[in-house]
């Protein structure tokens, strides 16, 4: 590898400098803000204390945290329930078709988040497509109010993040050693038992990666609750948004942001731990087989 004894660090330097200057320093800055307090006129009083973190624990805000967590957890759970069979079906398709199916499953994920959310406004509102369809099918009651409900928010979150979960689960399922499944079948286990005892446990790291991703992005989301929840469903993301853009309490907003980041780091570490354990199991299992 004499080629890039051409100083690897020098090659990485510009990007690393950029990320340090515009990602790490700003994040450190708001970490610092979180320990100060809001000034009388909305500025920052450099008065070191932990009040903001105490406020996060205040029942009002803790309630919002818990509710966002519940919504995010529901979204993650539903996304996994839909994505798993889809990912599994892709691994069972012809090998030449798999990349194409996967590409089209992931494609929506890279397209505009706002537009994908807006599509649900069109479908769910009182004059929307779903209500029209119901009327066409002979339903004559009051149009259903599906928009601006918790269900609409959860639907929007699942819809937007589903592609990533499919990708995450597919990538563990496709690496699964088929000999393990054959071995299980040869030893007399039926398809259901083989799935529950072999396939599912070995694909849990992908499930965890997908779930953590949906959970983190959902709990910090402010667009979906604003658009599909009609502003009636505050999530942590909306709370942060308000502190910075309307309440003008940056230190408190920063403290909320820090709680989000801490949650994210803890979940990612848990997930890394699970992945490491799962790959250990696969190795052990392969050796046994």
């Amino acid at each position: 590898m004499s080629y890039n004894a051409a100083r690897p660090n020098l090659l990485a330097a510009p990007a690393v400098l950029w990320l340090v200057a515009f990602m790490i320093v700003p994040c450190a800055l708001i970490l610092l803000f979180a320990f100060f307090e809001r000034g009388v006129f909305g500025g920052i009083d450099y008065n070191l204390n932990l009040d903001n973190f105490r406020r996060v624990a205040d029942p009002l805000y803790a309630g919002i945290f818990l509710r966002s967590a519940r919504i995010a957890l529901t979204a993650a759970g539903l996304a996994i329930l839909i994505a798993y069979p889809a990912a599994y079906a892709i691994t069972r398709a012809l090998p030449t078709r798999q990349p194409i199916l996967l590409f089209f499953a992931v494609l929506p994920f890279w397209s505009n988040y706002l537009i994908r959310t807006y599509a649900w406004i069109v479908l769910l509102n009182r004059e929307g497509l779903v209500n029209n369809l119901l009327r066409g099918l002979g339903y004559h009651g009051e149009p259903l109010s599906m928009l601006y409900t918790e269900g609409a928010v959860i639907t929007g979150l699942v819809y937007n993040y589903l592609p990533f979960v499919i990708l995450a689960i597919y990538s563990t399922l496709s690496k699964l050693n088929p000999e393990l499944i054959e071995a299980s079948r040869d030893l007399g286990a039926g398809p259901v038992r083989t799935f529950l005892r072999v396939t599912l446990p070995l694909s849990l790291s992908g499930v965890a990666a997908g779930g953590v991703f949906v959970f983190i992005l959902s709990i910090g989301n402010f667009v979906t609750p604003a658009l599909l929840g009609g502003g009636r469903f505050q999530m942590v993301g909306n709370l942060v948004y308000d502190q910075f853009l309307s309440a003008n309490d940056w230190p408190f907003g920063a403290a909320l942001g820090m709680v989000l980041i801490t949650l994210m780091i803890v979940l990612l570490m848990l997930q890394a731990h699970m992945t490491a354990r799962a790959s250990g199991e696969t190795r052990g299992a392969s050796a046994d087989a």
Partner: peptide
């Protein structure tokens, strides 16, 4: 992986 709202307010 950083939630975009956090990066946004930090910036």
């Amino acid at each position: 992986v950083i939630p975009d709202i956090v990066l946004a307010v930090a910036l």
